[in-house]
């Protein structure tokens, strides 16, 4: 496999329709979303967010993930070079699947949120076997 070199990307600011009540910028985390027959899996890059500062909200078919970052530096520190910006993360999705709210699993590792959203039984595709009569 040819090794790919990573390229820096500027963080995408969250488009806001309304004024934010809290100061600071808000960014859209980069995500991977895939689906297998049992569940929808979402991975979101949220560096600087502690596991207890992640919020996942599912209302009807609207999924919102929010991550609040820890202070980006100590109080006595002065910035000398700034190449990346810091801020909280918010992203919303509309789900086309019916999700079993009670079995949602969220884990956080190395600044990556992994969310497993199990589909409800009804939504699972089923193979209908034709019996020989």
């Amino acid at each position: 496999m040819v090794e790919k070199e990573l390229q820096p990307r500027e963080k995408e600011a969250m488009p806001t329709k309304t004024e934010l009540t809290r100061p600071g910028r808000v960014f859209l985390p980069a995500v991977d979303i895939y689906e297998n027959p049992e569940a929808l899996v979402l991975l979101a890059d949220m560096p600087g967010v502690a596991p207890d500062k992640v919020m996942v909200d599912l209302t009807d078919d609207r999924l919102t993930i929010t991550g609040e970052i820890s202070p980006p530096r100590g109080e006595q520190e002065q910035l000398l070079v700034q190449e990346y910006e810091t801020g909280n993360y918010v992203r919303e999705f509309t789900l086309g699947q019916i999700i079993d709210q009670n079995r949602i699993e969220a884990t956080m590792k190395n600044g990556v949120l992994r969310l497993v959203l199990p589909k409800v039984e009804k939504a699972k595709p089923r193979k209908i076997e034709v019996k020989v009569g």
């Binding site: 070199e5 990573l6 560096p47 980006p72 520190e77 000398l80 070079v81 990346y84 600044g111 990556v112």
Partner: peptide, 26 residues
Amino acid sequence: WRAGVYPLVNISEDTDHLYVRAELPG
């Protein structure tokens, strides 16, 4: 600075230290 090389870094200092931070999720 726009070094244009991954990972992007922020550098800060206080009286005794210099801090280099980079976002490396995953």
